[in-house]
Design a protein around this nucleic acid. Structure first.
Length: 1133
RNA sequence: AGGGCUAUAGCUCAGUUGGUUAGAGCGCUACACUGAUAAUGUAGAGGUCUCCAGUUCAAAUCUGGAUAGCCCUACCA
């Protein structure tokens, strides 16, 4: 027996199937039964279990699950090792919040050991919730043996990779892992560097008003600058704007855009009235000069005047021409002066970041206090300015110390805080208090070096902890020289199949093009310690690549330094910090205190998850690179990048071949989900209510995964009702009648397709077209296309056409070949649809498969046939089979569907109910093949629309009036401008002209004196309404209906109405579909002709043994039509 | 600020290499159909294809620009 159900209950199906999967270990078996040599490699991007799973995780994991299940169905072995991301700042911040401490308290109020223990205890906090959602949503991943990034084995693999980078050298001999300087956000008030994460916290960027200055840099006259001077004593100055005057003492260069045009302008110093020539970008002239003042006499100007006379003396000076021009230092600090600085600094350099949107088109460049500045100086070989650093002469100490004050050696401003916010409230309220920026501006004004001083409002980052402004400040960091591999990364990136492609070429590709070195250092506590030990003078260092190597080095150190160290049981801080190694020259070496960026952890997972290369070398070889990964698009520069970067730099290989980057899950109004807005969707609740499959199906079918999903539970309801509801009903229908007829699928007695009906062969053809389409879509990582195709098939074709038109075959008569064909056909459709849907709807698909196969499971197992599997997920995906696809058949069935639809629309318009038979349908035919095609599906059409006969109207009948429309596609190219006129000409064609063209195959026409030859393809011919008939048309297809009624037709219509009412009564009374009944009808004139002519028909349809007419009817009456109320009684025989 | 994605009916989305009535589902209205129905059919209402300009005989589609939303990156002086 096939199981039958009252209603669709998806959550109940989830529960049943989940239990079954667990009892029978279906996931394990689905992996184990496949050949390791035929693997499909998937990498799981590790989630962090210190947060609760959200609905977006369901989305991301559905995408992962779909392709893993699909590849499994295709016969691949798809191992899915789960993983947990356990390090990183968010975890530390959470712990600090819960303990009520700040970073500064670590090592003081709490030991590093205790702190890290707290982190370790936190990271798996919500593991249970994660395990639960994983299970309930049907995501198959191996969480029994996950990789965990804090485990020693994992850390050791990371070290191994780092060492590999340390040993790897560029062509010029530079290591891929090096220590360097960068300009990083730094909070002097908190005394700490800030991560970009901290800078991205809400509220860090605030609108502030700063004193901005346009400073005047005096050009030194030499060969290079000669062209800027008209005479020897001319005072030429370059204008540069800054919103941070405190950086001016650290200025070493001016940066211009190489392709920007600059102008030299003769004018006066607005504050002193002294004649001066200034250089600035042409495009910026209007910002500083008013054209009304151009060429006005200079001697009329008085200091304080608003109108500044000027004269443009030179234009179109390219930035590149200015390169190398030297200028006098603006605010010299004698203590910082060196011969090196005098020789190579204070000159104009170029940078592509320069714009002319504001300022002067010249950027004041202070390398220690701006990342762009730093890079520009580095590239141009301009030295940095600061107090002498004996250990590193090219890295002098900045002129601002780590508390945010100018060092004492800076004239006029030594000891002052550079930002007024660093002073106490009291100090700032003092009557004579002036911010340092203002003091600098005034100083410049007095010394004739300021061109313009004004307040400027702009957003500026603030420290989230102290609320004080952040400085950009030079800090030591360890870097991975990613920039040296960027060409190779870009090259290999082109071999990756990105979904969507634009993420690969756009967001990711452009990121690679502008790749900077990877700043690996984090001055934190809970993470992978950087395995580098250095002597105190930095002269000697050692990078450790394994625990064994560490052990050996420690033994060496123990011997040399008389210690008794042992490799700690935990490779985290603080234990690693305590280890002292010995350098080749015998000096002690201590670990660089940095941790590495957690993104390195996750990018290392292809290797570290297997503890490669210390274990599993073979396994790793088989599992690298991944065939497929998927994650949110926000990971493009996160996980996707780190995987790629490590893969390319360490193994000269991509790390993944196909990648799906899914979009965000927003609420239904396209707002981001946040606790604050209270619009967060609880995934557990959603799955409980609607079932996992409906949720998954909705998410995937609604829009492509890489689009943002506007999550609306109403959409899940729609998926549930429309797709699952329909499929469920179709199955239930099958089960109901199969049980009545005792039908069981017999794989050894399958009726050949050529002995099945047209309709059977049609749905089989549609089914195998679907198989091809769905496989193609999944192969192409287009799950949405697959879902929509399946949905369309189930709804439009299977349920609404095949089942609807076949119903009679299932309930009428005894089991015979036709009935068998119907059962076998429907069975095959359900079976295959279940398989195709299985990747997306794993629960329902398995439920369907198991219901369909249960009655034959034992036989199938015994005989080893395709239905033997315990689960659809253990089965082999049906192969595409072109021999089962009959395009001509699909085409003529399409005609049938359209003709029916048209005929029904006429009935609707004429208010002729479908139960009322009509005599004739007229069909104008335009060509013989059309007629032949329709003839093959004629019976279907007539039955569906309840019409007795079909008559074709040809040209010969004289009834047919054709009309033609131009085929723009074929004609457009050859006609060009004459197209419109030709279209009008063709629209006016009559039958003869159309027929003439069709007969001879060509027609000469002249339009606007140009001669053209038309072919039949250039016309789109259709028929016009037949006068005197009720017609409807759809494109080239027109049908006409004979609406003339006879007594007999009316009687038959009434008979069918009676059948319908009687059937309804049977249903109401809950009779079994096989029960025999006796019908008593009220003797009413309206039904007499029907009973007289169609008594046998009525009895046959309703399984009535007797039909009695009576004058004295008692009991309830039934509405037969608008006018007639009729007494009908149906009782069991 | 830069880069990326998106913009089509009230809502969710299709829309082939540009081709002439811009579609589907949901929702709404009305009428049908049903011996599977949490279904279905037919009809109606509902569109400045975000805006502007360009290319073209022809633009939802191609190009440029603008606007809005979102994502990523970012001290632009």
């Amino acid at each position: 027996m096939y199981r039958e159900f009252k209603h669709l209950n998806l959550p109940a199906i989830d529960a049943e199937i989940l239990q079954f999967w667990e009892d029978e270990k279906i996931f394990d078996r689905s992996v184990e039964q496949r050949d390791p040599a035929n693997s499909f490699v998937f990498y799981e991007g590790p989630p962090s279990a210190n947060g609760k799973p959200g609905i977006h995780h369901v989305m991301a994991r559905t995408v992962k699950d779909i392709f893993c299940r699909y590849q499994t169905l295709k016969g691949h072995r798809v191992e899915r090792k789960g993983g947990w991301d356990t390090h990183g700042l968010p975890i530390e911040l959470q712990v600090e919040k819960e303990l009520g401490i700040t970073k500064e308290d670590i090592g003081k109020k709490i030991t590093v050991e205790e702190y890290n223990a707290a982190c370790r205890a936190t990271v798996m906090r919500y593991k249970d919730l994660w395990d639960d959602i994983t299970r309930r949503m049907g995501y198959w991943v191996d969480l029994d043996n996950p990789y965990i990034t804090f485990e020693n084995d994992y850390i050791e693999s990371c070290w191994w990779l780092l060492k590999r980078l340390y040993d790897k050298k560029t062509a010029s001999g530079e290591s891929f892992l090096y220590k360097g300087f960068t300009i990083q956000p730094f909070s002097p008030a908190a005394g700490t560097g800030l991560s970009s994460h901290e800078l991205n916290m809400p509220g860090t960027y605030k609108e502030v008003t700063d004193f901005s200055v346009v400073a005047m840099f005096r050009v030194k006259r030499d060969d290079q600058a000669g062209f800027l001077f008209d005479n020897t004593d001319e005072d030429v100055r370059i204008l540069a704007w800054t919103t941070t005057p405190w950086t001016l003492p650290s200025n070493v260069a001016l940066t211009v855009g190489p392709n920007i045009g600059y102008a030299k302008v003769k004018t006066l110093n607005p504050y002193t009235g002294a004649p001066v020539s200034v250089v600035l970008a042409q495009d910026r002239l209007s910002a500083y000069f008013n054209t009304e003042d151009e060429n006005k006499p200079f001697d009329e100007f008085k200091v304080g005047d608003k109108k500044l006379p000027y004269q443009v003396v030179k234009t179109n000076i390219k930035g590149s021409q200015l390169t190398g021009v030297r200028f006098e230092q603006l605010l010299p600090t004698p203590a910082a002066s060196t011969p090196e600085l005098e020789a190579r600094a204070f000159r104009v350099i170029t940078g592509d970041f320069v714009t002319t949107e504001d300022g002067t088109g010249v950027v004041h460049t202070a390398p220690y206090f701006g990342a762009d500045d730093f890079r520009a100086c580095k590239a141009a070989g301009v030295p940095y300015i600061g107090l002498p650093n004996p250990k590193a002469p090219d890295m002098p100490f900045p002129l601002v110390d780590r508390t945010g004050r100018f060092v004492d050696e800076v004239p006029h401003f030594g000891g002052r805080f550079v930002k007024e916010e660093y002073y106490t409230e009291g100090e700032r309220k003092a009557p004579d208090f002036k911010p340092t920026d203002l003091l600098i501006a005034l100083h410049l004004k007095e010394s004739g070096k300021a061109f313009k001083i004004e307040k400027y409002k702009h957003p500026y980052p603030h420290c989230w902890r102290t609320d004080k402004p952040v400085l950009y400040y030079p800090l030591d960091s360890w870097f991975i020289r990613a920039s040296a591999a960027k060409e190779r990364m870009a090259e290999l990136n082109k071999t990756i199949n990105w979904k969507p492609a634009s993420t690969g070429t756009g967001r990711f590709g452009q990121w690679l093009e502008n790749l900077q070195d990877w700043n690996l250092s984090r001055s934190r506590y809970w993470g992978v310690p950087l395995p580098i030990w250095r002597t105190e003078d930095g002269e000697e260092e050692k990078c450790i690549g394994s625990v064994e190597e560490l052990q050996k080095e420690m033994e060496k150190a123990n011997a040399a330094l008389g210690l008794s160290q042992q490799v700690p049981a935990d490779l985290h801080r603080p234990y690693m910090d305590e280890i002292v190694l010995v350098s080749p020259s015998g000096k002690p070496m201590r670990r660089e205190l940095d941790l590495i960026d957690v993104w390195f952890d996750s990018g290392a997972m292809p290797y570290a998850q297997w503890h490669y290369p210390f274990e599993n070398q073979e396994k790793w070889k088989r599992n690298f690179p991944a065939d497929f990964i998927a994650e949110g698009v926000d990971q493009t520069r996160g996980w996707f990048y780190t995987l790629h970067a490590i893969g390319v730099m360490c193994f000269d290989s991509v790390a993944f071949k196909n990648v799906v980057s899914n979009g965000l899950v927003l609420d239904k109004n396209a707002n981001k989900m946040s606790k604050r807005l209270g619009n967060v969707v609880d995934p557990f609740e959603t799955i409980d209510t609607y079932g996992a499959d409906a949720t998954r199906w909705y998410m995937i079918s609604n829009a492509a995964p890489w689009e943002n999903l506007k999550f609306d539970a109403q959409g899940i309801v729609e998926s549930r009702n429309k797709f699952f509801g329909t499929l469920f009903n179709t199955y239930n229908f099958f089960a109901l009648y199969a049980n009545l007829d005792g039908f069981k699928m017999d794989e050894f007695n399958v009726l050949p397709y050529d002995r099945r009906t047209e309709l059977d062969r049609w749905i089989i053809s549609k089914l195998y077209s679907l198989v091809a389409e769905v496989r193609e879509a999944f192969d192409d990582y287009e799950p949405t296309r697959a879902c929509r195709a399946i949905e369309d098939f189930v709804d439009e074709h299977l349920s609404n056409w095949y089942v609807r038109l076949s119903r009679r075959r299932f309930w009428k008569g005894e089991m015979g070949e036709d009935k068998l064909a119907a059962y076998q056909t429907l069975f095959e459709c359900l079976m295959v649809v279940g398989q195709l849907a299985a990747p997306v709807a794993p629960f329902f698909a398995d439920w369907l498969y198991r219901n369909l196969t249960a009655p034959v499971k034992n036989t199938a197992k015994a005989k080893n046939t395709p239905l033997r599997h315990d689960s659809v997920h253990l089965s082999d995906l049906v192969q595409p089979d072109p021999s089962k696809v009959d395009e001509a058949l699909e085409k003529r069935m399409d005609y049938a569907q359209r003709i029916c639809s048209l005929a029904l629309s006429i009935r609707k318009k004429e208010r002729l109910r479908v139960r009322l038979p009509l005599q004739k349908l007229l069909l104008p035919v335009l060509d013989a093949s059309f007629q032949a095609e329709v003839e093959a599906v004629k019976a279907l059409i007539l039955a569906e629309i309840n019409v007795k006969e079909l008559e074709y109207i040809t040209d010969a009948s004289g009834l047919l009036k054709k009309s033609a429309k131009a085929n723009f596609k074929t004609l457009g190219a050859k006609l060009g401008k004459d197209m419109k006129d030709m279209a009008n000409l063709i629209a006016a064609f009559d039958n003869e002209q159309i027929n003439a063209l069709e007969k001879t195959g060509s027609l000469e026409l002249t339009v606007n004196d140009n001669a053209y030859t038309l072919t039949p393809d250039d016309l789109l011919v259709s028929t016009e309404d037949l006068p005197g008939w009720k017609t409807a048309s759809d494109g080239a297809l027109t049908v006409a209906l004979d609406v003339h009624l006879t007594d007999e037709l009316l009687a038959e219509g009434t008979a069918r109405d009676l059948v319908n009412r009687i059937q309804n009564i049977r249903k109401e009374k809950d009779f079994n579909v096989t029960d025999r009944v006796v019908i008593t009808l009220e003797k009413h004139p309206a039904v007499l002709p029907a009973v007289a002519l169609f008594q046998d028909y009525i009895k046959g349809e309703t399984l009535a043994t007797d039909l009695v007419l009576t004058d004295k009817f008692k009991g309830d009456k039934v509405e037969l039509n608008d006018e007639v109320q009729l007494g009908i009684e149906v009782s069991l025989n």
